Simulated scan of single mutants.
Amino acid sequence: MTVELMRDVDELDGAERSLVAGRVGAWEVMVGGGPDEFVVTATSADGARIANALSPLAPSDSALDDDDDDDDDDDDTVDLTVGGQAVDYPRQYVLSRAEVSAAITDLTAQRLSPDRWELLE
């Protein structure tokens, strides 16, 4: 399913097509956004765990706090359309296509490291 899911991710345009879903191992996975920036959320089969992929490229909170332009919150969020709904996502959740592929690989291997995943239980 991972190959098909990544093929579907490649078709996301952030307008007409902005959400795909599929199963990766024991996870129900949703990828939204496109064409260049995405968010990934996975839910365990029993619904007890939710995992949000994190971008390792996102600036740290302290780096954002040190920014001289306190009036500009645009650096903290990215506007994405997911499922037809425009949302300002916190930058740490916004991934490139390569990061989406790495996140899918993590889920397949059941390897959810805390520096790349936010786990909610």
Rank of each mutant, 00 (worst) to 15 (best):
S60A: 14
D68C: 08
S60F: 06
V82I: 11
L80G: 02
T77F: 15
D46S: 14
D61P: 10
V94S: 02
D74K: 09
F38I: 06
A45K: 06
D68L: 13
A63H: 11
L64C: 10
A98P: 01
R91D: 12
T81R: 13
S44P: 00
V31D: 02
L64Y: 07
G83M: 07
S55G: 08
V39E: 00
W27S: 03
Q85H: 11
A42E: 02
G47N: 04
Q85L: 14
A48R: 10
F38A: 07
I50D: 04
D70V: 13
G83P: 00
D67S: 13
A63F: 07
V87P: 00
D79F: 00
D65N: 10
F38M: 08
A42G: 07
T77S: 10
T77D: 14
D70M: 08
D73R: 05
A86N: 06
D66I: 04
A48S: 15
D68I: 11
G32I: 01
F38Y: 14
R97P: 00
D61W: 04
T81Y: 02
D68K: 08
D61K: 09
R49E: 12
D70S: 12
I50T: 15
D67H: 10
D71C: 05
D75A: 15
D79Y: 00
A26M: 09
T81G: 07
G32F: 00
V39Y: 01
A42V: 07
Q92C: 10
P35M: 03
G84V: 06
S62P: 00
F38N: 01
T77N: 12
G83W: 03
L54Q: 06
A98T: 14
D61S: 13
A63E: 15
S96Q: 06
G84L: 05
A48P: 01
D72Q: 08
R91G: 11
D46Q: 11
A42L: 05
G83T: 08
A48Q: 09
A45T: 10
D67T: 09
V78T: 11
D72S: 11
Q92R: 15
T41R: 12
V40T: 07
V82H: 04
A63M: 14
L64R: 12
D65K: 09
L95I: 09
G33S: 09
P59V: 07
D88Q: 13
L80D: 00
G25M: 05
S96A: 12
V31R: 00
T41W: 00
W27E: 00
L80E: 03
R91K: 14
G25F: 05
P35K: 04
G83L: 08
G83Y: 06
P59T: 09
R91H: 12
S96T: 15
V40R: 01
R97K: 15
V39K: 00
S96H: 05
G84E: 01
Q85G: 05
L64W: 05
Q85N: 10
D73F: 10
V87I: 15
A42N: 03
E28F: 12
A26G: 14
S96C: 08
Q92D: 13
D69L: 03
S55Y: 02
Q92A: 12
L95A: 08
D68G: 09
D70N: 05
S96E: 06
V78A: 07
V29C: 02
V31E: 03
T41Q: 13
